[in-house]
């Protein structure tokens, strides 16, 4: 067999130093190690080849062999793989969301068929961390949320925020820092590691533990032709690496979150506020929230998967 150098196109800057960047490098190193230096991956960092919204097309057409797809940007292109995003809040943590995606792909061929239609193959899953609400003022209950301006994005947050009696404000990720600083928004849904990464915790000092759950996330994807062209051994290495990646990523993510929470206690002075779970669960019956959930169930049903049954994975256990 001949030695191949694969191209990985990513939006992530190399120096980002967060769990996503660190584990991408880990994966690249492991790949070289496990193929005994036979093959390697060259990473094109920081969107130098394809920006976040260009990656699926670029990958599908073979601009790169590997890439990370921010799934929630493509709900209409990849409805099945976006399942988790329609169900905010949901009870699973990061690792569980990753395992959920693995299970879906193993159980229902429709999940990978949706990607194959785009000439893509997912070999691994990168969920985001558990989200709470980072605010510029203390929020202790759903009653405190009335009238707050909360940053919203994607397809589930707007309705959820409205159901909580707050107003959803769409703000670009890179403008959210200034928006928090200038009281254009009062809160944004986020996890500790990302809050630190974007430095939002410099300007918003209350982290409210609203149990929004982990969201999904990124597909570690390959150009389908590049995947099929690999010999069995290399393909086996990739399949296994995808599984190992989730474990490694979840580990680094937990470490990160713990480190940030220590920083918050110390010099950064971010106060962590508990939030009554029932206040959040109380709004799940809201018509708007249900409409978003039903939207996914409708789409998924049409694609031939038992949607109602899958949706049960997102039910919170009723408190006994």
């Amino acid at each position: 067999a001949q030695a191949d150098t694969y191209k990985w196109i990513t939006f992530k800057p190399q120096g980002a130093g967060d769990a996503q960047a660190v584990t991408t490098q880990w994966l690249v190193d492991e790949f070289a190690k496990r193929t005994e230096g036979m093959h390697s991956i060259e990473v094109f960092w920081g969107g130098s080849v394809a920006k976040t919204r260009e990656i699926p097309e670029a990958l599908s057409a073979g601009v790169g062999d590997f890439g990370d797809i921010i799934t929630p940007y493509f709900p209409d292109l990849l409805p099945l793989n976006n399942a988790v995003g329609f169900f905010i809040p949901q009870p699973m943590n990061s690792l569980e969301v990753g395992q959920f995606m693995e299970k879906m792909h193993a159980t229902y061929p429709q999940f990978s068929a949706e990607l194959e239609n785009q000439n893509l193959h997912a070999f691994g899953f990168r969920p985001l961390e558990d989200y709470g609400l980072l605010c510029t003022k203390p929020v202790k209950s759903a009653a405190d949320m009335k009238g707050l301006r909360i940053r919203s994005y994607g397809f589930a947050y707007p309705k959820l925020i409205e159901a909580l009696g707050a107003s959803p404000v769409s703000i670009a990720t890179s403008e959210a820092y200034e928006a928090l600083q200038r009281s254009i928004i009062d809160c944004t849904p986020i996890g500790p590691a990302l809050a630190r990464g974007w430095k939002y915790d410099e300007v918003a000092k209350y982290y409210v533990e609203v149990p929004l759950g982990a969201s999904f996330g990124h597909l570690l994807a390959m150009n389908l032709d590049s995947y099929n062209a690999m010999d069995d051994e290399t393909r086996g290495v990739i399949d296994q690496l995808g599984k190992d990646y989730l474990v490694e990523y979840a580990r680094v993510l937990d470490e990160d979150a713990a480190r940030v929470r220590e920083l918050w206690k110390g010099e950064l002075g971010v106060e962590v506020i508990p939030f009554p779970k029932e206040d959040l669960l109380g709004v799940l019956d809201d018509a708007g929230v249900q409409e978003v959930r039903q939207e996914w169930i409708g789409k998924a049903d049409a694609l031939g998967v038992p949607a109602e049954e899958i949706a049960e994975s997102f039910d919170f256990d009723t408190p006994s």
Binding site: R53, E54, A58, S60, A61, V63, G64, A172, E175
Partner: peptide, 23 residues
């Protein structure tokens, strides 16, 4: 470097994606 199909894909996305921006 990566083929005509790939170049066409980039031309197909870059015009919309660069300008579809609040910033």
């Amino acid at each position: 470097i990566v083929g005509v199909k790939a170049a066409t894909a980039m031309l197909g996305t870059v015009f919309f994606d660069t300008t579809h921006s609040f910033h």
